[in-house]
């Protein structure tokens, strides 16, 4: 069984159709990259998968682990094993990173019928993951994302992903705005999490990320549809040629 099956997905934002029939199948262990120009619907797809409010699905279906994802609440999607790394991580004043992450992990453990981890058992787990993302220990007691730099916020997303160990991680432009050092750290973190039964969808505008995290498949999204799919070489082609040809092809239709 496929991990994720997206069939003819149409979605509106504020009454405007943004996704116009997406088909995508992700099998366990696969890394897919979704690339495309600004406004092509990349982030909308990520938001629909993570059940964000304000996105109206008008047609199509999404099966995650064989279940109807579009019927699930955001928290249940997360507990089923889908993790979204936010393009713009949210600041949550007054809740420490450590508390937040343990609450999230324990919510997911509870969903799976496992016992909660107490602070003493949780701390070493968190420390290890923070080390992996080269984050200083002080971040665990700071409020979630509050006062973090852009790069720190993105790294913090990957720390969360590492702690929660999702089956499917959707990284929404995690590479945007990162300098090359921060990009390497994030990519190393992601690569360390690659497993045979863990899949990823990398939503990105830039090919650069794919130098560090090599995908199995690359899809080009334009005007709400996947217009081309291929292997990693497709990303290089995009890098060389730009998105111009995509737009030209669309205009020609």
């Amino acid at each position: 069984m496929s991990l994720l099956e997206v069939r003819d997905l149409h979605a509106n934002v504020d009454g405007k159709e943004i996704l116009k029939g997406i088909d995508l199948v992700v099998n366990p262990g696969e890394i897919h990259s979704i690339m495309g120009p600004n406004g092509s619907g990349k982030s909308t797809l990520a938001a629909v998968l993570a059940r964000r409010e304000g996105y109206e699905v008008t047609k199509g279906e999404v099966l995650f682990r064989g279940k109807d994802l579009l019927e699930m609440k955001p928290e249940d999607v997360a507990c089923e094993g889908l993790f979204l790394a936010f393009q713009y991580p949210v600041e949550v004043p007054g809740i420490s990173n450590a508390y937040f992450l343990r609450a999230a992990l324990n919510a997911q453990r509870k969903y799976r019928g496992e016992d909660p981890l107490d602070a003493i058992d949780f701390l070493p787990v968190l420390k290890e993951k923070m080390k992996l993302l080269e984050m200083e220990e002080q971040f665990q007691s700071r409020s979630v994302n509050e006062g973090f730099s852009g790069g720190e916020k993105k790294r913090n997303e990957i720390v969360q992903m590492a702690v929660l160990e999702p089956t499917l991680a959707v990284l929404d432009e995690t590479d945007s705005g990162l300098d090359i050092d921060a990009l390497r750290v994030v990519a190393n973190g992601v690569n360390a999490m690659r497993r045979e039964d863990r899949s990823m969808i990398l939503v990105t505008h830039y090919q650069r990320l794919l130098d560090y995290i090599v995908p199995d498949y690359v899809h080009v999204l334009a005007n709400g549809r996947i217009v081309k799919s291929g292997g990693p070489e497709l990303a290089l082609e995009l890098e060389r040629e730009g998105y111009g040809w995509v737009e030209e092809a669309l205009a020609a239709k």
């Binding site: 964000r52 609440k73 955001p74 928290e75 949210v90 949550v92 809740i95 919510a107």
Partner: peptide
């Protein structure tokens, strides 16, 4: 913030409570 907490698996009631308590 509420959605952010929920997207990590925390149910809506608990997420509200967390934010209010914070």
């Amino acid at each position: 913030a509420l959605y952010y907490l929920r997207s990590r698996g925390i149910d809506e009631t608990s997420a509200r409570e967390l934010l209010l308590f914070a």
